[in-house]
Amino acid sequence: MAKTIMIVDDSATMLMSVKATLEMNGFKVETAADGEAALSKLKTGFKPDLIITDINMPRMGGLELIKNVKALPGFRFVPILTLTTESQAAKRDEGKRLGATGWLVKPVSGADLIKVIKQVVPGA
């Protein structure tokens, strides 16, 4: 069964790029433009197999999203990857502390992205 991945990023370009790569590799993809939008989507009962989120976003950033997702009933085990730049090492650690599984470093190559997802999502 195709795994579902939610990407949260305020950059439409980034969403488009990641979405295309994932869909090409047989994943189902949901997108959200910020943490708030992602959270309200998750509250409707949509449950992805993995969430990939940017850190810096308007309204609700990635770290706050992680905090909120982990508090949602049924989401405590959902793997979350943060999308960071090489200069955001501190944010990565902070993300992990809040419950993220790992991180991706922008720019993410398609091969790396798939590799990490296959590492994090069993059965992907």
């Binding site: 305020d10 950059s11 370009t13 980034m14 790029s17 940017d54 810096n56 976003m57 308007p58 730049t85 922008k106 720019p107």
Partner: peptide
Amino acid sequence: TELFRFVHTLKGNSGL
């Protein structure tokens, strides 16, 4: 913060 986010995101995008 907004300004940083703009530059940061744009840079991230250009890296694609």
